[in-house]
Design a binder for these strands. Structure first.
Length: 444
RNA sequence: GUGGCUAUAGUUUAGUGGUAAAACUCCAGGUUGUGGACCUGGUAUCGAGAGUUCGAUUCUCUCUAGCCACCCCA
């Protein structure tokens, strides 16, 4: 067979049957948990106006500046493939007047997102996110509850030792002051930081905090922390979130360097990591890092936070909100790394219908449907004509009973019932075959 | 977007300047209507295109994709 000349577009991937059990497992657990917590599913389009994303995610973020799939329609509209889905859900919330519904309005979504980034393991240009959003509740308990739900969902999938990293980045009333303090701090240290950070000083101050260079880490050790510059409201809110987390026994790690790359976040930001990754990051630098790193996923499974200004920013009423999203592909890789079993094997087909000759083939087709009506899943291979190869297939499928319909049986209106393990055969009238099989299956 | 490594049957891997090997898988067959073992055979325009050459899968270039690092993120 010639190799197809067309291969996958860069960064795209197929989800093959072998992987489907993981997807099903995640969706099944998520649906159950989210339903229990009162979240309802929403599906928004993959395509939205480009301005929706630039206004929400932020004009100067990497996602918008470098990673958006945007293009012009024939009609001249500027549209984009969604790089994330909070913006779309907020748009829908506003557009369908959900602000008049009883609050909180709790929604969840699942679907493909698109970012024109360079692909690597666990990073695709089309990738799936499962996420939740809660509108209309600014209480710290809500932040904690969402984190709790994310944590429990991951835990229910069989993941062990998850680590929540959490921080508060304040809001528009206290963040400017913080940024000023940060700038002051770095002013007389600007020459010492790495070259990349020199750029960041001008473009993206917050990002200085999570630079991986050792010099920058050292310098950043004493840098002002967001938490210390929160105003009274933000501070008590953050304190509240942590207290709730303590209460429900979710372990967390205060991470003053966690800032996240989307502009719309206010106050609480958090990520949930598989524990090995966090450990690796926190280890002292005297170990052969390269080797450890190569085996360990180094990304968050779940990330999110509060975004109290976004609904209003996009033209809706002032509505506090919070949410998170999970990367499905990364989650599945982690599940595989941790050897989580899916337990979602296919129902084993019970019977195989083998036929010989045209008229028998027609009979076989009818039998197939007859069994299906009775809830019995059958297999057949109508493309194979020799009894030999059909039995071979039946055997390979691990089937217990094979029904053989040949010329003779077709005329006699009978069927040979062969029990595969013993090889014992019996001829049974076609009218009674379903009943005969049913009885045998019942005995098991 | 930048840099490094890689690209041979469905899969995992050999190998060579004269059109390719193995294992597993898959398909067919091993006579007259019966599986599992075993045996035989089949399946690769050696990622795509161009160049050098008498001749390239093997050398060179371009492209594409994958992996990794940077960057960023889910």
């Amino acid at each position: 067979m010639a190799k197809p000349l067309i291969q996958l577009v860069k960064g795209m991937h197929d989800i093959l049957p072998a992987d489907q059990p993981y997807w099903q497992l995640i969706l099944k657990k998520a649906t159950a948990i989210l339903n229990d917590y009162g979240f309802e599913r929403i599906d928004t389009p993959i395509v939205e106006s480009s301005s929706l994303f630039s206004r929400s995610v932020g004009e100067t973020t990497d996602i918008i500046e470098k990673e958006m799939y945007n293009f012009k329609t024939r009609g001249g509209d500027d549209i984009s493939l969604r790089p994330e889905n909070t913006a779309g859900v907020v748009r829908a919330y506003i557009e369908h007047g959900m602000s008049v519904m009883p609050h909180p309005v709790q929604l969840w979504y699942f679907g493909p997102m698109f970012r024109h980034d360079n692909p690597q393991a666990g990073r695709f240009r089309q990738f799936y996110q499962l996420g939740i959003e809660s509108f209309g509740d600014d209480n710290a308990a809500t932040d904690a509850m969402l984190i709790f739900i994310g944590y429990k969902l991951l835990e229910s999938l069989g993941l062990k030792n998850l680590a929540v990293r959490i921080n508060s980045i304040g809001d528009s009333s206290c963040r400017p002051q913080y940024l000023r303090a940060l700038k002051d701090y770095y002013r007389n240290r600007a020459k010492k930081v790495c070259n990349k950070c020199k750029k960041r000083l001008k473009t993206n101050l917050l990002r200085l905090l999570d630079c991986e260079e050792q010099v920058c880490k050292d310098i950043g050790k004493d840098a002002p922390q967001t938490v210390d510059h929160l105003d009274a409201d933000c501070k008590s809110h953050f304190k509240g979130v942590l207290e709730f987390l303590d209460e429900v026994k979710i372990p967390y790690l205060l991470d003053s360097r966690l800032v996240r790359g989307l502009d719309y976040y206010t106050r609480t930001v958090f990520e949930i990591w598989p524990d090995e990754a966090v450990k690796t990051e926190n280890q002292e630098s005297d170990q052969p890092a390269a080797e450890v790193h190569s085996k360990v996923p180094r990304w968050a499974l779940c990330g999110g936070g509060r975004y109290d200004k976004l609904v209003n920013l996009l033209g809706g009423p002032k509505t506090p909100a919070t949410g998170w999203s999970m990367g499905m592909e990364r989650l599945i890789i982690t599940l595989k790394n941790q050897n989580v079993a899916t337990h979602e094997h296919h129902a084993q087909p019970k019977i195989f219908i083998a036929q010989l000759g045209e008229s028998a083939k027609r009979k076989g087709l009818l039998l197939f449907e007859e069994f299906r009506k009775h809830g019995i899943s059958a297999r057949a291979s109508f493309g194979r004509d020799s009894i030999k190869s059909q039995l071979r297939i039946a055997h390979r499928l691990g089937i217990k009973y094979t029904l053989i319909v040949g010329q003779k049986e077709s005329l006699d209106e009978t069927v040979i019932l062969r029990e595969m393990d013993s090889g014992v055969q019996e001829t049974i009238p076609q009218t009674k075959i379903v009943e005969a099989i049913k009885q045998r299956l019942k005995k098991e």
